[in-house]
Simulated scan of single mutants.
Amino acid sequence: MTHILVIDDDPDILAIIKIGLTKDGHQVVTCAQPQELQLDQIDFFDLILLDIMMPQLNGYDLIQELRQRTEIPIIFLTAKTRENDILYGLSLGADDYLTKPFRIAELRARIKAHLRRETREHYTSLNLEPYRFNLLQKQLYYQDQLVPLTKGEYAICEFLA
């Protein structure tokens, strides 16, 4: 069973999504007040659906906080339909962007695709003897000795590897 968090200030949208996704066997938690989220518990979820235009804390600001804590898939569900809005949302770390009004069948298909990708094997290290990259901790080892690098130096080394 997958756990999906839906963040939107519209209670009708929350209800429709919860009903539709619960039928697929997902456990859905809804949140109408994003400023009250327990960010330290966000990794409990397998996927997040996030609105952009909400009072007090908008989706753009929230995704930036979320991306500092987790890499789980985040799909924007929003009425913002301009190309610049879509590009900006994706540049902040959204994995997908669906505009309102949306069809629940399309939302369910996108969720299924993202969850399928998440079950693929994720690599935490890259071994190029005698070098080993710890991709999670962003560290480079040479013959099992930690190489002290700045963030920029590490990023270049990882890119080249």
Score class of each variant (00 low, 15 high):
1 M>F: 11
2 T>H: 14
3 H>S: 14
12 D>T: 04
20 G>R: 01
20 G>K: 01
23 K>R: 14
29 V>K: 13
30 T>K: 00
30 T>P: 06
32 A>L: 07
33 Q>Y: 13
35 Q>E: 15
44 F>T: 15
47 L>T: 07
47 L>N: 05
49 L>I: 08
51 D>V: 08
60 Y>C: 13
61 D>H: 07
62 L>E: 01
63 I>E: 05
67 R>Q: 07
70 T>A: 02
70 T>R: 02
71 E>Y: 12
71 E>G: 12
72 I>R: 05
73 P>A: 05
74 I>P: 06
75 I>L: 10
75 I>A: 03
76 F>R: 00
76 F>Y: 09
77 L>Y: 00
80 K>Y: 11
81 T>E: 15
83 E>D: 14
85 D>F: 09
88 Y>G: 11
90 L>G: 06
91 S>T: 04
93 G>L: 03
98 L>F: 01
102 F>K: 04
103 R>A: 15
104 I>Q: 09
105 A>S: 15
106 E>K: 13
106 E>C: 09
116 R>Y: 05
119 T>E: 10
122 H>G: 00
125 S>Q: 13
125 S>M: 01
127 N>M: 09
130 P>E: 00
132 R>E: 09
140 L>N: 01
145 Q>Y: 08
147 V>W: 07
152 G>K: 07
156 I>H: 05
160 L>Q: 08
